[in-house]
Amino acid sequence: MSPLERRVRALISLFPASFRARWEEDLVRTTLETCTAEQSWPHPRDVLDLVLSAIRAHATTPANQPFRVVLAQGIVLGAALLASVRVGALLLRFGFFVHWLPINSAAGVPSDELALYAGPLALELAVYVLLAVAMLQQRRVLLWTGAITLGGIGLLETLRYPGPIGIRWALGMAVPGAIPFLVAAFTVAARKTERALAVRPALVGLALASFATTTFRLAAWFATTTWHLVPGTIDRSAAAVAALLLVACTVSGFADPRWFVALGVAVIGWNARDFIQTGDPLVFLGTAFVVAISWVHWRVLRRQAAGSGRGRSDRELA
């Protein structure tokens, strides 16, 4: 396979699985024919066209599949979404650590204490990379190894907060520790249904989510310290905007139901820790809202699907 064809195939892997099952070979061939022998990449215009068409196909392909399939895929995506947010948070903490390393060293913080902080961070990041590779390559053993390692790190974190006051905090810390298990268990479950989850585009999306949350955290921290805002103001405003977007998506019927299941799982997972640790009723209400919207969206799509008979994805993959 030529480097050009490899790149074309990588681009086309962004399309939904049901679309590729029907059109992939033909699309690869036609795209290659638009290129001259000297080209190592398709024309930028065609690259953009492929990426936009893939997004469009994701938005318009009904995930008109059995309930358990959509649910399993949604949960994998949700757990992976949680993992990507976690990776974003870890990257940020690591970034801060590196930034303040010279200052801390100069202030006389012993190096083994610094290593004790940075070591687990680096390890956790590395294992998340491993987990992503395992998902991509569909290596089950690697997947479970990564999940168990990450779960172990999560467990160690809960042990860092001993005593009766720390129990709530420790329980909360167990939530991020459970995420990789969710990813692994449901990746395997989704594969067992014999309808492959489009792992690669999902991972690209999650990498973007990770980048976005890191940038958001950094911007929120910067804005809070610069303008002396009440901590949490930015988070609450962002949550309100996200809720509005969610309503807009539901009303316009845009988006794949799997992403709504995923969002529900991610929001529950992310807020569970906060709720357990702080008991903040706002967190609980926000979570309930997102879950309710996801459920409404899901019901509407189910009814539409029932009205139009068997979906394209089912027929094509049968």
Partner: peptide
């Protein structure tokens, strides 16, 4: 008007449907 391959196959899928 210059069609891109992605646009073409997206349209073909809808037209076939």
């Amino acid at each position: 008007i210059r069609l891109g391959p992605g646009t073409l196959y997206g349209a073909l899928e809808r037209l076939e449907e």
